[in-house]
Every structure is written in structure tokens, then in C-alpha cells.
Write a protein that binds this DNA or RNA. Structure first.
Lengths: 253, 253
DNA sequence: CGCGGTTTTGAGAATCCTCAAAACCAGTGG
DNA sequence: CCACTGGTTTTGAGGATTCTCAAAACCGCG
């Protein structure tokens, strides 16, 4: 993998005990033993450039990752190239679990910004299950959380109008950013283009643009150079008929 | 729960060792110990009538179920009543996992036919994780499988045309039925109405009807009283640009 | 200044929706 | 046996939404 364009292995900078993410109170506290195991489970760090593909549909990846920093997204393609973004990936999220369990990856992952990933070996996963049932439980938990997000997305694509969909998505992203402390500056830096939004909402680029404009006109958001600022969060949520994520503290592996 | 309309606890008819589902070669073989544990983990059976609601959004269910027989579906509602069906549930599927792990259920489950469910206690789940890492792994696996199906569904709603979506859905259902031996008779008995299909595809009832008609005209399927017969499976798959489920043998808990 | 990526605008066309009514069909009770 | 009922499927028609095509505007960057 050395010299592979777009990715490089970094020397390990973040021992798990000093993981900057773990300090956030979104994440549950870990036992000392658990932390030690995770630290051992982690075999390295991987840095990927913006725009590079982390995981490819059809591959059998030997790795499992947790995002330390940066943004990405999961997507699938139809044979003729139509793309559907399935979900966004943010710090604390795990990627590659499907591939690790089910064998072949059935979706791809691309980096929206430079990303730093913790690397785990697929073949050590079962050891985690044997030695640390609590961590095993956490992994199932993480999978269920993803499933819940997909359920909500499915509701959106199937039954919300374009305007409601956009409102939901922006509120959803905002909520997730907030939970991992990414909304420090007021104008939230979201490194996604309207094309990404279109591919998430299942709309064309043109119509997405007009829809975003409507949200702007209604003073719910403002769109500024590749990013949007949420002006009226509860307005967005009300428009979308969405209650918010209300997540409890979650595990970080 | 006694006397609750639409549901009744049956005396236990199926010891896990003689589970009729387990005989199917879709399911992986279990160790004797595993089987014993599952048998103990299972606290009863629940029979629900067609049309009754098994799990309700917003509830904190204390139970986890595996479907022994019958059909159902998971769905979510918007505040104004619009319904989105997330996935169908067939024998061998687990339901209530999200609720067991994450707390509150964020979707509901309704029976499409009389269903027989194996009942497990949520509070015993962690014991399974402690004593049987293999089974714990299986549960994560089952969750990942659901996630993969949702990914494909999301691709469908977002990027496939109405006709492609319908083709995909029918091929998908056919494939799942086949894997659990439900396609014995030629005219596959699918207990779903066009309203269900509409709510799965994110289309209106009227347009769904016209779309199904098109598939009929193309000699890919025939629709006959509340059910459809697949005439040209590979034609459907080709139209949808779908490769099939290709699942390996899976666990049954 | 020119280039590539992104956003914006306009316009006609295709898709999909809603409304409304009819047809069909299985089951029920008279 | 027949009429009635409720659920499902079918059909037609006009209208709203969303799409595609095409071009312009904008913007950071070399």
C-alpha cells in the first residue's frame, strides 16, 4: 500500500487513552481494560486525501476503520453511473463493518476532506468478541445506529417532498456535527457541494439548487461558498416533521 | 399481555433443535452448545394475527423476536400520516434489535399474515454476548445484513425510475422468498397489496398500479389477486440493474 | 488571464401526483 | 342464491413536481 496515491500510513500519533474524540461527552466512558484492548486492536493510522476512495464496492477489505477526523460518505452506483449517497461519515463513525462481516463490500466510501482513520484488522475482530463482550455489544450497537439513520433516510426519500427532504438533511447533518463538536464557528463548515446534496436526496442538481434557494428565501439557511449556515434549526425540523436524533451517549471503538 | 387483541402466547411447539427453519440450507449449522443456549434464551412463542401491529414506534420493547413463520413489514410514519415501508420481514429475520439496543423503537412492525414469533428477553441479550461470542457475532451479522438491504433500497428510491424500482422490489422479494423456501408453488403467494408496494417504492397508489401494468405488458410478471407471479426473473434484474442478493449461509437465532 | 469546478437561471418535456369514479372480488348476512 | 359491504385494482384527466438540456455567472487558483 506504500506509495498508493491518496493514502499514506502515518506513524501513530494518537494513543487511544489520549484520543481527542474520547474526551467528548457524546461518547461513553470506557473501562481501563477495554481501552487497553482497543489500543492493541488498533494496528495503525491511515491518512487519506480529500476526494480519494477509501473503500471500493466489490472489494474484500481486510480492514475496519474508525474515523478520527475528517468527513466522508458512503455511496452506491448503478451500472450506468447514477450515484446514490447513502450516508455521511463523521468522526467517531466506523466504516467497513459490512465488508468485514458479510465479505464483499457492497458500497464505496469517499473522503470529502482529508481524513485520519484508525485501522483495525478484520481477522482480529473475533478476538474482540471473545474477550470483550461489552465491546462486541458496542459494535452491534454502532451497526444498529447506522441502521436507524438509514431508516430515517429511507422515509425521507420515499415520502418527503424535495423541500422537506432538504430541510431534513441539513438539520440531520447539523445535529450530527453538533454531537461531535464540529460546529464551533457559527458558519458551519460543511465540505459538501450541492451535487452531493442532490445525490443524497435523490434529486437532480438543478432541482436541488432551486430547493436550497427556497430554504434560503424562507430564511431557514444561507448557502455560502461550499457550505451552509443553519439559521433556523427548529424551522427546518418542523418543516421536515423530524424530531431530531436524540441519541444517548455512544461507544467509540 | 393476555387477552391483548391480535396476539396470543402459544405453548412452545418448536424446540430449537427441531426448528423447521433450521433445516433449510440457507442457515448455517449451529454447534450443539449454541443450540442449547438459544433454546434457553428463547422464552416463548407469540402468535399474531394478520394486520396486527407487533411493535410500535416510540415504545420501549422488552422483547426481541425471530420470525418462525409468516410475513410482516417495518415502516415509519410522518406526522401527517404518510407511510414508508422500510423492509419486509420473512421467516428467519430478527425484529426488535434496534429497540433492544438503542432503547426506543423508531419504527413499527405490522404482520402481513398470521405470524409465529420466537420471543427473547432483551435483558438476557448481554448474557448471550458474554457466553457465546459466536452468537454475538451472528447478531451483529444479522444487523449488517439488514443494513445492506437498506442500502440497496435507498439506491432504489433515490436513483431508480419507477419502473426500475418496481422491477427491483419484485426481484428482491422473490430472491428472499426463495432463500427461505417460500416459493414452492409456481404462482408465488405474496400477501401484499399494491398499496404496500406503493408505500415501499415511495410512489402513489395510482402510479404504482400503472407501473405494475407496464411490467405485465412487458411479460416480466403477472399480477393476480393480491400477489404476483414472476415470469422473467432475469429480465426484472436486468431492468433494475441489480445483481441479486448473493448471500452466503446465514445464522438463525 | 484562463481554467475547472460550482452555482444559477430559463424553458420545455417527462414523470408522477391528486382527484374522482368505476370495476372487480371475496366474504357476510338475509 | 343474492344483495350488500369493504377492500383492492383499474382508468381517465388535469395539474404539480421534477427532469433534462443548455448556457451563463461566479469563484478560487495557478
Amino acid at each position: 500500500m506504500a506509495g498508493h496515491p491518496g493514502r499514506r500510513f502515518a506513524t501513530r500519533q494518537y494513543p487511544c487513552e489520549k484520543c481527542p474524540l474520547r474526551a467528548l461527552d457524546t461518547f461513553r466512558d470506557f473501562e481501563k481494560q477495554e481501552l487497553e484492548f482497543v489500543s492493541e486492536f488498533k494496528t495503525g493510522e491511515l491518512a487519506v486525501d480529500k476526494g480519494s476512495t477509501v473503500l471500493v464496492e466489490g472489494n474484500h477489505s481486510a480492514h475496519l476503520y474508525t474515523v478520527l477526523s475528517g468527513w466522508g460518505f458512503r455511496y452506491k452506483l448503478l451500472p450506468d453511473g447514477r450515484r446514490q449517497i447513502l450516508n455521511f461519515i463523521m468522526p467517531g463513525d466506523m466504516i467497513g463493518l459490512q465488508g468485514s462481516l458479510l465479505g464483499e463490500m457492497q458500497h464505496s466510501v469517499e473522503a470529502l476532506s482529508p481524513m485520519l482513520l484508525c485501522v483495525f484488522e478484520r481477522e482480529n475482530l473475533f478476538e474482540l468478541y471473545r474477550k470483550h463482550p461489552g465491546l462486541a455489544f458496542d459494535i452491534t450497537w454502532i451497526g444498529s445506529r447506522e441502521e436507524r439513520m438509514l431508516d430515517e433516510n429511507l422515509l425521507s426519500l420515499g415520502r418527503r417532498t424535495a423541500l422537506e427532504r432538504a430541510a431534513y438533511l441539513l438539520a440531520f447533518i447539523h445535529g450530527r456535527m453538533e454531537s461531535v463538536g464540529l460546529n464551533t464557528g457559527k458558519p458551519v463548515e460543511v465540505p459538501i457541494s450541492q451535487q452531493h446534496i442532490a445525490d443524497t436526496l435523490g434529486l437532480s442538481l438543478v432541482h436541488t439548487n432551486k430547493t436550497i434557494r427556497k430554504l434560503s428565501d424562507r430564511k431557514l439557511i444561507t448557502w455560502r461558498d461550499r457550505g451552509c449556515e443553519i439559521i433556523d434549526l427548529s424551522g427546518l425540523m418542523h418543516l421536515a416533521g423530524w424530531e431530531g436524533l436524540n441519541e444517548s451517549r455512544r461507544p467509540l471503538i
